[in-house]
Design a protein around this nucleic acid. Sequence first.
DNA 1: TAATACTTATTTACCGGTAGGTAAACTTTT
DNA 2: AAAAGTTTACCTACCGGTAAATAAGTATTA
Lengths: 194, 194
Amino acid sequence: MRRIKEDLKKAAIFLFTKKGYNGTSVREIAEKAGTTKPCLYYYFKSKEGLYLSILQETLDEFLEIISKKYEKEKNASEQLKMLCFSVYKKFKQKKDILRLIHSIFYGPPQSAPSFNFESFHRVFNDAIREKINLAIEKGEFFDGDREAMAFCIMSAFNGVAEMEIAFPGKYDYEKLLDRVLNTLFYGFSRRKNG
Amino acid sequence: MRRIKEDLKKAAIFLFTKKGYNGTSVREIAEKAGTTKPCLYYYFKSKEGLYLSILQETLDEFLEIISKKYEKEKNASEQLKMLCFSVYKKFKQKKDILRLIHSIFYGPPQSAPSFNFESFHRVFNDAIREKINLAIEKGEFFDGDREAMAFCIMSAFNGVAEMEIAFPGKYDYEKLLDRVLNTLFYGFSRRKNG
DNA sequence: TAATACTTATTTACCGGTAGGTAAACTTTT
DNA sequence: AAAAGTTTACCTACCGGTAAATAAGTATTA
C-alpha cells in the first residue's frame, strides 16, 4: 500500500547510481518501481525533487557519523583511526550513492541539479583537525603543519574510497586504509632526533 | 576554412565540461561552433566519437608528462616533487577537461560512453613508486611500507587537484601542494631513533 | 582560358523516438 | 461522499542521427 514511495526511491537510487542523473528517465524509474510516471510526480514534485531527497538523506547519515566523538580509545591516533573507520564503514554501506555524489560534487557544474555537499568536507575536516590537535597535545604527533597533516589524512581516506569505487574488489581496501593510516601516523609521530 | 573541426572540438570541450556528456546536445555543440549538426557528423562519426577523441587527446598529454624521468634534481624527494609539480601544472592547464574525466572515471558506470583511464593511474603510481624506491636506496626515506607511501603521495596530489576543482580560487593550491608534500616527506624521512 | 567533371564541405529539412511534465478520469480507502 | 492514490492518454520540446540537395574547391580537358 504505502510501499510505492519507497519503491520509487529505491528504483531511483538504483538507476541514478548506475546511469547518472541525466542518463536516467522518470519513465524508467516509475517502471522499475512497478508504477507509473504521474505517481512519481504525486509523491515527489519532480525528478529533481526525488533526486535531492535522496542526496539529502545520505548526507545527513554521514554528518551524524562524523559528529560522534570517538573518545573511548585512549590514544588520539586511535581515536582518529576509529573516526576514519566509522566513516569508511558507512561509505561501504552507501557506496553506490557515494559514487554518485562524488561524481556530481567534482563533476561539471550543470550536469545535475546543484546540491551543497560542502558541509561534509568541512565537518569531516574539522573532526580530523580536532584529533590531530589532541595528538599533538598528548605528544603522540610532532608539532608540525597541522592543516597539511589533516589534509594528508583526509586525502588518504578519500583515496581509498575512490580506489574502491574505481576498482571494486581489486584489493582489501579496509586493510589498505589501515596500512595507509599507519604509515601516516608513523610519519607524524614525534621523533627523538631531527 | 579548415577551422570548423577545431571549433567543433572547442565547443564540445566547453559544453561537456560545463554540462557533462548527457547534458550536452549535439545541436548545442554545432550551434556554439557556428555550424550545423550534420557538419559535426561529417567530421566526427558521432557524438560519442567526438567525446572520445577529446578524452584520448587529454590522456595522451598526461601520459607524456608522467613518463619523463625528472633526474636533474639530486635528491630523490626533489625529483618526486618535480614529478608532482609537472603533472600539477598540466592539470591546471586542462582543469576543465580533467574535472570531466574525473567525474566520469569515478561516476556511475553508464553515465557516459566508457573509456579506459586506468593507464593514467597505473603510470602515475609507477612513477611515484620508482622515486620512492630511489629515496629509500639513497637513505632519504625510511624503509617502510612503500606501497602505502606511494598511495599517500598520490592521494595527497589527488586531494589538492580535487580541492581546486571543488573550491577554485579558495586557496593557493600550488602552495598547499608544496606544504602537503613537505609534510609527507618529512614524515617519511629516515629517523635517527625510534 | 574556360568549361567540365569530380571531390569535399556544408546546409535544409526531416526521421522515429523519447524527454519531463500534466489534465482528467478512474479506483481505492476513510 | 470526500479524500487519497493511481492510471490512461496526452502535451510540447527536444534528442541523436541522416538523406538529399547544394555550395565550394580542384583537377582535367578542349
